[in-house]
Design a protein around this nucleic acid. Structure first.
Length: 399
DNA sequence: CACTATGATTGTAC
DNA sequence: GTACAATCATAGTG
């Protein structure tokens, strides 16, 4: 009936499967004739005069094994026990193991001794470098952080982020170690289980110690792929954390008012060609207390945003033009005005295609010529962008 | 909280 | 490498 279904694993069909499905047992049938060979020519297992008796024994055992599938469970169990206790059992077992070894498993040898997975090695190295694997200490994280800050050139007052980063990293570390522990436990548990199972089975079928070893290796390989996954996801987590930490966008600080002032002054006084040279950028960077690339960014953003919406920047443009003008007038009276990067002489001269009608601010210079291209393109792509003479008198390097 | 301003990054073209 | 354009993500503001 159906309730017997679970037992079918041990029933005739199940037993048949257990005996025949195993690759090592497949050749067992073909082994049978050799056993008869032996009974023909060889003197017996111990080579003594009672070889004849032994031969009979072995034949008997084999006969019993071959007919075991035809018996009921209880009978089979009883027979199994009887066979296990048979005095010839160990000898027969070792012979069967040997034959199995020779016939069925030789092809597996190629897979053995596989080299360490290079990906796993890489992941290991990375985790070690990030301070996730390896000994517990804040060194790895701190080192990474300091490297990050120094290369990123960001403000040094980021101890808060440091601790944040460190705590996040140690969180990852904890999870990683817990998972790794779980994995190792599961692996060893499973290995032990399978080993016990095989040992148990080795009482009824030929399972050599080498075969058990091989099985253990297979299990370890399987678990190793899980381990790789764990390490990979840990690496990913660290990378995300790092990128978050390093992503300067996340802790953007507006430049100081003074810095913006200086940059704007330069921009509007070179509106006809707002492309500071490398030296000019350095100079501006120094004055503003920012990096050259930040100056570049600023000019890039400014140009594009100005071009996009000149109207919006009109007021600003006038304001700075005015400032520059004032600076110029002052410099006339007292030469050497230290600030105002474009130097006093404002860009009234150049190609002033745009006339900005300024609402009267304080009476004196209401309208102001701004040397800007209304169509929004300062230069043809490809023309040397940084021809503006740095810091010195204003540019208009006509090209 | 929505909106704008703004510094930085990314992808593309030259 | 630089500039541009689009976009991201945060800062600042009402």
């Amino acid at each position: 009936m159906l309730q017997q279904q679970p037992l079918t694993g041990n029933g005739p069909a199940g037993r048949g499967l257990a005996l025949n499905a195993h690759p090592g047992l497949q050749p067992l049938n073909s082994v049978h004739p050799p056993s008869q060979h032996r009974s023909d020519g060889e003197p017996g297992l111990d080579g003594s005069e009672n070889g004849l008796e032994n031969r009979r024994d072995i034949g008997d055992i084999l006969q019993q094994i071959m007919t075991i599938t035809d018996q009921s469970l209880d009978e089979a169990q009883a027979k199994k026990h009887a066979l296990n206790c048979h005095r010839m059992k160990p000898a027969l077992f070792s012979v069967l193991c040997e034959i199995k070894e020779k016939t069925g498993l030789s092809m597996r040898n190629t897979q053995e001794e596989e080299p360490q997975d290079p990906q796993l090695v890489r992941l290991d190295n990375m985790l070690l470098a990030e301070g996730v694997a390896g000994p517990e200490k804040g060194g790895g994280a701190a080192a990474a952080v300091s490297a990050a800050t120094s290369s990123g050139g960001m403000s040094p007052d980021s101890s808060l982020e440091h601790s944040d980063y460190k705590s996040k990293l140690s969180q990852i570390r904890t999870i990683y170690h817990t998972e790794l522990e779980k994995y190792e436990q599961a692996c060893s548990e499973f290995t032990t289980h399978v080993m016990n199972l095989l040992r148990e089975q080795s009482r009824t079928r030929p399972v050599s110690p080498r075969e058990i070893e091989r099985m253990v290796a297979i299990i370890h390989r399987k678990f190793s792929s899980i381990q790789t996954q764990l390490k990979q996801s840990t690496c990913e987590a660290v990378m995300i954390l790092r990128s978050r930490f390093l992503d300067a966008r996340r802790k953007r600080r507006n430049f100081s008012k003074q810095a913006t002032e200086i940059l704007n002054e330069y921009f509007y006084s070179h509106l006809s060609n707002p492309y500071p040279s490398e030296e000019a950028k350095e100079e501006l960077a120094k004055q503003c207390g920012i990096t050259v690339s930040q100056v570049s960014n600023w000019f890039g953003n400014k140009r594009i945003r100005y071009k996009k919406n000149i109207g919006k920047f009109q007021e600003e443009a006038n304001l700075y033009a005015m400032k520059t003008a004032i600076g110029a007038t002052q410099s006339e009276q007292s030469p050497q005005t230290p600030n105002s990067t474009g130097s006093g002489s404002f860009s009234l001269s150049g190609s002033a295609d745009l006339f900005l009608g300024v609402p009267p601010m304080n009476g004196e210079q209401t309208g102001y010529h701004i040397g800007a291209q209304t169509n929004g393109s300062w230069q043809e792509p490809g023309s040397p962008p940084s021809v503006t003479s740095p810091g010195s008198d204003h540019s208009e390097n006509s090209n």
